[in-house]
């Protein structure tokens, strides 16, 4: 068995004196989809921010066996960690194609041919983005923005793709589409850490799940088991335990 791609141990994050994440441990094996579900304010986004290096944290985060603590956000991006944040953080006044081009900024030394090939791949996965390539990102609909955020992240050819609430604020049909794409990404070998409030959809697509409650891991296990767990079902899936 090879070492996990991402290994988080004893991770705590505090905003001033208020600790939002306490001693969280989490592992993601290569090629798997791991989901972290939990209610609003459980510390899911905070945890991703700490793994990405956006927030100072205590504890250990190892990626491909290497400790990440001393690396800046940009250095982590260069190593293949890519975060699609909850707020998308698109470049609203720039065109769709420019947004995608910047997604490959960390790969600028690989040359234009490599990024062109990835661009074709991304357009293949999101034909809607190709139709809108010249349009400003700020004029896109909510679903298209999420697609652009995903496409932009894929332009960096991530090894670990972290998705923060990809279904947030989207219509149910589009949520379905986004999750279908996430499931398809598994075939490309990318490891996905999926943070979601939409527990039902997340557990359907994921291999393994963690339930985060007020900054602690409440329970974890294979996604199918979690979906059957009566406590999880009652709290997050809206199913009354018999």
């Amino acid at each position: 068995m090879t070492a996990p791609l991402l290994e988080v141990a004893d991770l705590s994050v505090a905003y001033g004196k208020v600790e939002a994440v306490h001693h969280v441990a989490l592992t993601a094996d290569a090629g798997r989809i791991v989901t972290v579900i939990g209610p609003n304010g459980a510390g899911k986004t905070t945890m991703l921010g700490a793994i990405m290096g956006l927030l100072p944290a205590r504890g250990s985060v190892r990626y491909m066996g290497e400790p990440l603590e001393r690396l800046t956000v940009e250095q982590r991006v260069a190593r293949g960690l890519v975060l699609v944040p909850e707020r998308r953080e698109l470049f609203a006044a720039m065109s769709v194609e420019d947004n995608l081009a910047l997604g490959a900024f960390a790969r600028r030394r690989e040359g234009e041919r490599a990024t062109k090939a990835t661009l074709a791949e991304v357009y293949g996965r999101f034909p809607r983005l190709e139709q809108r390539r010249g349009q400003l990102a700020g004029t896109l609909s909510g679903g298209e923005r999420q697609m652009l955020a995903l496409g932009r992240a894929l332009m960096g050819r991530p090894k670990l793709l972290m998705l923060d609430e990809p279904s947030l604020g989207l219509a149910p049909l589009i949520v379905k589409e986004i999750f279908a794409i996430v499931a398809q990404l598994r075939a490309t070998g990318v490891t996905i850490l999926l943070v979601e409030q939409n527990a039902r959809a997340a557990l359907q697509v994921a291999d393994y799940g963690y339930v985060l409650e007020t900054g602690d891991v409440a329970t974890h296990g294979p996604a199918a088991d979690l979906a059957r767990d009566p406590k999880v079902a009652a709290t997050y899936l809206g199913i009354k335990a018999a």
């Binding site: 956000v73 940009e74 991006v77 953080e89 470049f91 609203a92 720039m94 081009a101 910047l102 900024f105």
Partner: peptide
């Protein structure tokens, strides 16, 4: 130019640019 776009991106959205690997110092 990609570097020119990176500067524009930083001006528009610093966090977004960092997540693409554009360091604010650079």
């Amino acid at each position: 130019a990609l570097y020119g776009k990176a500067l524009r991106a930083t001006a528009l959205n610093r966090v977004g640019a960092r997540l693409m690997g554009v360091s604010p110092n650079f």
